[in-house]
Design a protein around this nucleic acid. Structure first.
Length: 975
RNA sequence: GCCUAGGUGGCGGAAUUGGUAGACGCGCUGGAUUCAAAAUCCAGUUUCUUCGGAAGUGCGGGUUCGAUUCCCGCCCUAGGUACCA
């Protein structure tokens, strides 16, 4: 009976689907366990062998938990809004929904072949109106909420209005815009509706603001930072300017501290936590304001070193600072304006990248030192970023290298305020230096001086202690078509939310997916895109009268909107009324195990935590962290293959003429171990005075043309049209062969279509089966590590499965024997149970695969045919290789799926030994082994070992200084 | 620069609290089976070696009876991040 994996796998995949084997129930006597993969964006290229790595690992864990008696939720879906489908639409005119649907179908087929235990009845797609109506609703909830710092949570906007009505701004302590003004209850009540709206906008958790974007007038679009090279668009090389646009922002900064604190409560990888901590960037210091000489204005700065305040010799403002135009003196006006214009042309990223060039200009204005009363010149410098802190710094050149460099460059005085430190070469950033030359701070260490400086600043009314975060509010508008439309229309320029009962606001049809000619986002092309506030539906733009019919928002939401709450949706995926019912949310609570790539550290994983905390504050979800434990699976890299080739041009020195047509030169493919120079000499130069030049090239060659010995299949390579450009325009080409073969060079790189190193899982499933693929992907190495794919290795896991099959087939033609197993058989089984259970709990899947191999090898040589051994063994292996184990399980006479069979219980009594093969080492080096009974005393062991002839041979007559005996472990003889 | 992870045979990797370095698999070598191939099975495979052994986990030190594992210094690789005041 052959192991026919194709037939077996198809059979069980169909059975699981037909019986809905893995459908999770929302109530159960069993404890719950929620295993989630980061859902994929369905790209047109389909899955490669790297994608399923995490899915296989999570599937093993989900299946293991089912064996352990848990009610397991293991869903899957698609993050189906996104750029590639839109770009394809721009090129071809095909609606992104169609492209997306096609790609999803491809993905689904590929996923099904690998035998995952997903509950597909809960599938979600972020681009369907049934899903995004809830995304839109969450947006409106954010709009209708504010962050109350007193209660330290988000609240409905009504509670803020109530505070305003009672006491004005007096009792309000909110996370809000910087520029809010104070008012009394009386004043508030006298405001017009519009004025009230304008005030509230500064407090809402999502708000409109003027945000700078990279605008390319020629392309009529906004570009991302990485789409710009040297101030020109990557596509077309058109000029890019920085332009302010009204955009939605998310007040994630309100949650900065809680996002930081929450990290202590979740079991996530340390590097990922560090990345988020870094990104949030909490820094403690003080906010200080400096009066401007001869003006009522003041400049506020943030500093982490208020203790160095007596070292301030100048101030630097970002060129964009709002006070610049007010403070600049007549004499300096021209220079300042020229400087501002020059820096405006450079993007922020460019400015950051270019750290070496120091530039700046004096404003002519002076600030007043809060303690000394001295005048401090105010400069502009582009090393100060408008978007961090207040966009202004108090420059302390003796203590900050950037200030120091700036001061040196512009000959600004440097005042040394450190005790016994030489600052003639560079600034002193050492925090152990004592403060000197600083009035009341002199002689103190940094910690004490900081505390005292803040105290004195507060007393004098010049500032206070402050915590600053690097985390900025997140821009939430995209000038794209293929995203969630905002449930927003505008009345008199003020945004209005569309009520929950009228959602979804469905994405409109457009003729083309590009921005409009006047620079509006693609939705500006829609003809039916206006909101009727009387009919509560989307109507034709022609009906806009700004009385009852109003224009709708033209931007769409970013990619992270739909992925910020999807884990909650799976709990109740088909609920039409709510994003999930309270019962479902209370039952599943949070994700117990979340698997995905570490590249989402500061994107998806931060935004999702933010939304979860917000939903928690409003009592919509029962927990404020959505994933208890998270694991980052490593990348499976590809092994790219390269051909090296040289283009050779020949000239004749005697005539200066070109000997062989240079327009169609000679090309030679060569490889590492071949001698190109010699080859050219021997074949072209021989008996002539020709001179030649060599140009070297290297090119990716598709790995399908390269075998496991790195040999290139020349014929297939040459006939592939994607390399035709290589050969066109070449007079002749040849190969430098080693043993009649052309050997390619290999390099490990990220798997990608453009590198032609992609290995497709379908072909592997076809040739070796899904179980082989699953085992092999786990066997490759530790889950969290990145590792190169090597198709050749899969034969190992495949032959393991064949051995496993034979073990059962040989056991009396699949009819295993009842009756007592031998001691050895029990020992093999129980040491396997122990190891596999530990491995799965530790996510060490690679080592359990080798444990299976050892167990099957040992049981095969024991010729084991006992049901009592063979049945539990199948349960151990089934999370990894579910198809073959289901089949063998059935053949052993079981009628229920193995998926819910209880995990075998480990019994330590089967592993008890009465003797041990002791390693005998000399000075720590093992030299020979000796079998001794375990009940021997230390003295008896020492006596036996010392008497042994091999010991005497090692000692060569010497007397050992010491003999270490660790019973049950080792014997070490020193001397 | 800073943060994080890592460095072990030809390759992927194992060694759970310091106790037999190289499990398991790939590849390679030899053999069995076969008319032959595939498949399967058996043996070998860190390096050097005078065949007794000796050295060996990025490099240099240290602690220890004993270090891949702990400590100090350095080198290299990968990922993240950066005029953050």
């Amino acid at each position: 009976m052959e192991y026919n994996f194709n037939e077996i796998e198809a059979k069980w995949q169909k059975k699981w689907a037909d019986n809905q084997t893995f459908k999770a129930e929302n109530n159960s006597d069993k404890p719950k366990f929620y295993v989630l993969d980061m859902f994929p964006y369905p790209s047109g290229a389909g899955l490669h062998v790297g994608h399923p790595l995490g899915y296989i690992a999570s599937d093993i864990f989900a299946r293991y938990k089912r064996h352990k008696g848990f009610n397991v939720l293991h869903p899957q879906g698609y993050d189906s809004f996104g750029l590639p489908a839109e770009q394809y639409a721009i090129q071809t005119g095909q609606h992104p929904a169609i492209t997306t649907e096609t790609n999803i179908n491809t993905y689904r087929k590929q996923l099904d072949k690998i035998g995952f235990s997903f509950d597909w009845s809960r599938e979600i797609r972020t681009s369907t109106p049934e899903y995004y109506k809830h995304t839109q609703w969450i947006f409106t909830e954010l709009f209708n909420a504010w962050y109350n710092k007193t209660t330290d949570k988000a609240e409905k906007i009504e509670t803020l209005i109530a505070l305003f009505e009672a006491d004005g701004t007096q009792t309000v302590n909110a996370a809000c815009d910087e520029d809010v003004v104070n008012f009394t209850a009386q004043e508030w009540n006298a405001f017009s509706t519009k004025e009230k709206e304008q005030v509230l906008a500064k407090y809402r958790l999502t708000y409109l603001s003027e945000t700078e974007v990279n605008w390319c007038p020629a392309l009529g679009t906004v570009l991302a930072n990485d789409e710009i090279i040297n101030g020109l668009s990557e596509r077309g090389g058109h000029p890019v300017v920085r332009k302010k646009m009204m955009q939605w922002s998310m007040r994630i900064s309100a949650y900065a501290q809680r996002l930081l604190d929450g990290l202590n409560t979740i079991d996530w990888p340390q590097p990922l936590k560090d990345a988020q901590t870094n990104w949030i960037g909490r820094s403690q210091g003080a906010s200080v304001h400096f009066k401007i000489e001869g003006s009522d204005e003041k400049i506020e700065v943030f500093t982490t070193r208020p203790d160095t305040i007596f070292g301030v010799t100048f101030m630097t403002l970002a060129p964009e600072h709002e006070l610049v135009s007010q403070i600049v003196t007549h004499e300096q006006k021209e220079a300042v304006e020229a400087y501002i214009e020059a820096t405006a042309k450079r993007s922020e990223r460019e400015r950051m990248a270019d750290v070496k060039t120091i530039s700046g200009v004096f404003t002519g204005a002076y600030a007043v030192h809060p303690f000394t009363g001295e005048n401090i010149p105010i400069w502009l410098g582009d090393y100060v970023l408008a978007s961090y802190g207040t966009g202004a710094v108090m420059a302390v050149p003796c203590g900050d290298q950037r200030d120091y460099d700036f001061a040196k460059h512009f000959n600004i005085p440097i005042k040394n305020i450190f005790e016994g430190v030489d600052i003639s070469e560079k600034a002193c950033e050492d925090k152990t230096a004592k403060i000197a030359n600083s009035d009341f701070l002199s002689g103190l260490n940094v910690k004490k001086a900081t505390k005292l400086a803040i105290y004195e600043l507060e007393k004098a009314g010049f500032g206070q202690g402050k915590i600053n975060y690097r985390l900025r509010d997140a821009v939430f508008s995209r000038q794209r078509y293929w995203g969630e439309p905002f449930p927003v229309y505008y009345v008199d320029g003020m945004p209005q939310m569309i009520a929950k009962e009228h959602l979804p606001v469905v994405l409109p049809e457009v003729e083309k997916y590009l921005p409009t000619e006047d620079g509006q986002p693609p939705l500006g092309n829609a003809e039916v895109w206006a909101w009727s506030s009387t009919e509560n539906k989307v109507v034709s733009n022609e009906l806009i009268d700004n009385e009852a019919v109003f224009p709708l928002e033209l931007n769409t939401m970013p990619g992270w909107a739909g992925s910020s709450w999807y884990f909650n949706r799976y709990m109740d995926a088909n609920n039409e009324n709510e994003f999930a019912s309270k019962e479902a949310l209370d039952y599943w609570k949070e994700v117990d195990l979340y698997l995905g790539g570490s590249e989402h550290a500061t994107g998806h994983l931060l935004y999702a935590r933010f939304w979860q905390k917000f939903l928690y504050d409003l009592n919509y979800v029962p927990v404020d962290e959505f994933a208890k434990k998270l694991i980052n699976q490593g990348m499976i890299t590809g092994t790219s293959a390269f051909v090296h080739y040289a283009i050779i041009h020949f000239t004749s020195p005697s005539t200066g003429n070109i000997a062989i047509d240079t327009k169609r030169p000679i090309m030679v493919f060569y490889s590492k171990n071949t001698d190109l120079e010699k080859y050219v000499q021997d074949n072209f130069i021989k008996d002539s005075d020709l001179e030649y030049t060599i140009e070297d090239f290297k090119r990716h060659v598709d790995v399908v043309y390269v075998n496991s010995s790195d040999e290139l299949n020349i014929k297939e390579f040459e006939s592939d049209s994607k390399y035709s450009d290589l050969f066109s325009g070449v007079l002749e080409f040849s190969y430098l062969l080693e043993n009649d073969k052309y050997i390619t060079t290999r390099e490990v790189e990220k798997m990608s279509k453009s590198k032609f190193n992609v290995v497709n899982p379908d072909a592997i499933c076809e040739q070796y089966g899904a179980d082989s693929l699953r085992l092999f992907e786990m066997f490759l190495g530790p889950l969290e590590q990145s590792k190169p794919w090597n198709t050749a290795g899969i034969s190992g896991s495949h032959s393991f499965l064949k051995k496993l099959w034979r073990l059962y087939a040989n056991a009396n033609d699949f009819k295993a024997v009842e009756g007592a197993p031998t001691k050895d058989e029990l020992k093999v089984l129980h040491k396997t149970i122990k190891k596999v259970e530990e491995d799965i709990e530790n996510f060490s899947f690679n080592t359990s695969v080798s444990t299976f191999m050892i167990a099957v090898n040992e049981l095969s040589s024991l010729k084991c045919n006992k049901k009592e051994i063979l049945e539990p063994l199948l349960v151990l292996i089934s999370p990894y290789a579910p198809h073959i184990t289901e089949e063998l399980w059935e053949r052993l006479g079981n009628t229920n799926s193995i998926a819910f069979a209880p995990f075998p219980t480990f019994d330590a009594s089967h592993l008890v030994e009465n003797s041990k093969e002791y390693p005998i080492s000399f000075n720590g080096k093992m030299r020979f082994k000796l079998e001794l009974p375990l009940d021997l005393s230390k003295e008896e062991i020492e006596k036996t070992v010392m008497a042994h002839e091999k010991t005497q041979a090692q000692l060569q007559g010497r007397t050992p200084k010491k003999v270490i005996v660790v019973p049950g472990k080792i014997i070490n003889i020193v001397g």
